[in-house]
């Protein structure tokens, strides 16, 4: 039996807010491992366009995805912005974003479902409506879905 307090805790999610392709986006803070400065990535031949390539983070090689390209924007310049290192789909990978903004607690009840047109084939899991974390609405990204879509097996 969950107590009232813990139920209340479960109802609130801590989200990392960041900006990609000019949009305010978010992801669960719990999957974020670290944030590093973007660096030149080694191209992976044949990979989908939004896979930027490999970067070296203190001896570990991570595959980095460019969220902007996935949302239909042009490819970001090399070595500009930040890479959020996240765990998703049983893998560790990087997500290149323009800038990292803030960490905010958002009540689950405040999240809205996204319609099929805007969920970008499952990459966007929910929407934080305007007025909750600022004037803009934010797209909550699903890291498991991103790993499934971009990485093999």
């Amino acid at each position: 039996m969950a107590s009232i307090e813990s139920t209340a805790d479960l109802d609130v999610k801590r989200l990392l807010l960041f900006r990609a392709a000019g949009r305010l986006c978010a992801c669960d803070l719990s999957v974020v491992r670290e944030i590093v400065a973007a660096r030149v990535a080694t191209r992976l031949p044949g990979a989908p366009a939004w896979v930027m390539g490999l970067i070296n983070v203190r001896g570990t090689l991570l595959t980095v995805m460019d969220l902007a390209v996935r949302f239909g924007a042009p490819r970001s310049a090399d070595g500009v912005g930040s890479v959020i290192v996240v765990a998703g789909g049983g893998k560790l990978f990087g997500l290149r974003v323009d800038s990292v903004r803030d960490v905010r607690a958002v009540a689950d009840a405040a999240l809205e479902p996204v319609d099929d047109q805007r969920n970008a084939d499952g990459v966007v899991r929910a929407l934080v409506p305007a007025g909750v974390v600022g004037d803009e609405s934010a797209l909550v990204c699903d890291m498991d879905a991103i790993a499934r879509e971009a990485l093999a097996g």
């Binding site: 992976l44 031949p45 044949g46 990979a47 490999l54 570990t60 090689l61 990978f93 879509e149 093999a152």
Partner: peptide, 16 residues
């Protein structure tokens, strides 16, 4: 070093 290969990437590489 191992790395996570992307889907559809060329299967020409044994590692990095």
């Amino acid at each position: 070093k191992p790395f996570d290969a992307p889907r559809e990437g060329l299967a020409l590489f044994s590692g990095a």
